[in-house]
Design a protein around this nucleic acid. Sequence first.
DNA 1: TGCGCGATTCTC
DNA 2: AGAATCGCGCAT
Length: 176
Amino acid sequence: MSRVLKQSFYRRDTKVVACELLGKMLCRRLPSGRIIRGRITETEAYDGFEDRASHSHKGPTSRNVVMFGSPGCAYIYLCYGVHWMLNFTTRESGYPAAVLVRAVEGVDGPGRTTRHFKINGKQNQQVLSRVKGLWVEDDGLNLTSSLILRAPRVGVAYAGAKWAAKPWRFIWPLSR
DNA sequence: TGCGCGATTCTC
DNA sequence: AGAATCGCGCAT
């Protein structure tokens, strides 16, 4: 029996949410009504004002304002003018944080994942706790936490050595 | 109003 | 190794 993740799932420590999202099902209903699902296999945490790798580090702007709002919302932005990045907001309102969805089973890479699910800026700020266009389900799969790998985040060298080295990337390797 | 660059991916 | 491609963030 699958259940849709509630807002309370997201209103927690960002790294815990990033880790626990592994094994959950990313779900997308297309305008045609067709539903696409994929098991999340890789995430990254971007947390708070101090994290120099996070968009939230510079304070609220028109792009990142979703990170400062309610947990359990989609934060979607265009990267390199080409790829849409899918994030889920975490923590309480006012605390800027989000989890980047880097991969689902069989689809490796954040830009490829959004392309696969036909996700773009139209889904930005969408609430995830209701079954509309975008949500996440727990279908009962129980991952053994010892099998989860941690690694530095990708593409954040600009943040400086201290923040680039944080092992805030979470990988479920058995799915590969 | 302009400029540098990015939580990337594809091709050469 | 280099291109694609454009909006954001900050400096003028």
